[in-house]
Design a protein around this nucleic acid. Structure first.
Lengths: 247, 247
DNA sequence: AAGAGCTGTTATGTATACAAGTGCATCCTA
DNA sequence: TAGGATGCACTTGTATACATAACAGCTCTT
């Protein structure tokens, strides 16, 4: 598979969207992009169509392309999809996992356990938190892999990525929480992961699915709470014109 | 939303793929398509990218586009996805359904019951079978709608469409079955539908999901059996080059 | 005779010119 | 001054020309 210009444009735009440099709603004009990437408009357009297929970009005829902007309804629907798929994947993982898969999941779990303890213990959080997130991802990816369904894995990862478009802009102003609250939260997450792992390890598909669904549900609810907490659910309901008015 | 040439090309190609006129593996050359549709190559290319996003077309750089060809692995993975989503949707439908939703589902079910009885009774199958299929679809669509998640509905419909690419070519040589067998089969399908409906009607999400999962599993197994029965599972494992050799 | 290399053909990838639609600012009118 | 018409600038959509990679058929060599 040789790399052609449309792939270059694709990678370029995709990266900027994911990193947040191009925020949701940001118009993506073929001309400026083409001069920025130094390819012609044709491969840029093709890149935009590919990104549309992934759900990162929306295109409407004659009005051009823009970074996909999610409303709360769509966000919830995406979360529900993710819940369904990741829950099912956990069930499949319980049945289909290889020993190597299980090992990978266990390692991620153990790393998380240790990191969680250290963070709760208290000294120098920041570094460990990045590590914790990484291990969290490793845990979830491990399960998707163990489920032995590439299509499902790709789809879950895609949904996650799309969701980040919604969550990403929120990170800036998370409502402050007490350390006790976040610690309690971390313990809950860890406990969920342990429950999921146990179910998978003993091959109990039903329990694995239920535990995973509960886990995702927790995460989603926390996020939805964040959204309404930051007063965003209402703001997002505003139409284009209304938003323009306030600016 | 005005209709532009790339939409024309999109509709044209999509229709031909779904109808089977362009069979899986069929190369889709921009030049011939453009002269056929009477638009230039540019909108044709864009149409192909859109179709790729839907999973109906595969494109590889410099080698061009072709109608998506599924191997057994991918088919099974798609079915698993569909199982997960449609099962979950049934669960949601049990919780979220409106009275109108329920009515629609019940009507489809009742129509199917009557048609099944008539078909089993015996006179002039053909017409009724088309009707039966239509009501079957109506039943499933009704549940997706009742789940109140547009994204999920669209995704399930898309998966179904993609699956047809695999199943479609098979229809030609279905191994003959005795009428007793097909009748028994129809009764099973109807019983499944009734079970699903009852669970949804009484708001039992768990039961609705399980019944739906079982139902889809039945369908999938039947189809997979058909595939191996027609000696296709082995053929499809062959690589491009091997296939080219035999031709 | 088999295989490597060459060459012409064909289809794709890309750039660019042109057409056409959209939105905005300006200007005119009541 | 408010409302609407008009024209302009800009962007997208489309056609097309050109560059380049893949492929097929041929020849030449071993």
């Amino acid at each position: 598979m040789k790399k052609v210009n449309s792939d270059v444009a694709y990678d370029y735009i995709r990266k900027k969207i994911i990193s947040g440099e191009y925020a949701p709603g940001n118009p993506l004009m073929t001309e400026s992009l083409s001069s920025e990437i130094k390819v012609s408009r044709t491969p840029v357009r093709e890149a935009l169509y590919k990104l549309k297929g992934e759900g990162l970009v929306s295109i409407s005829p004659r009005l051009g392309a823009s970074v996909k902007k999610m409303d709360v309804k769509e966000f919830r629907e995406t979360c529900e999809l993710r819940l369904a798929l990741e829950g099912h994947a956990a069930g499949l993982a319980a049945v289909n996992h290889s020993q190597a898969d299980l090992r990978e999941i266990r390692f991620a779990l153990e790393a998380m356990r240790e990191l969680t303890e250290r963070i709760i213990a208290g000294k120098d959080e920041t570094n460990f938190i990045d590590d914790l997130v990484r291990e969290d991802v490793r845990f979830h990816v491990g399960i998707m892999t163990a489920a032995n369904n590439d299509l499902m894995k790709r789809e879950i990862l895609r949904l996650n990525m799309v969701n980040r478009l919604m969550i990403g802009p929120l990170n800036i102003r998370q409502p402050a929480k007490t350390k006790a609250e976040t610690d309690e939260n971390r313990r809950r997450v860890l406990a969920s992961h342990e429950e999921i792992y146990e179910a998978i390890a003993r091959g109990d598909a039903g329990a694995a699915r239920e535990a995973m669904e509960q886990h995702i549900q927790d995460i989603v609810e926390k996020t939805l709470h964040l959204i309404s907490g930051s007063g965003r659910s209402e703001t997002r309901q505003l139409s284009e014109e209304e938003l323009a008015y306030s600016g």
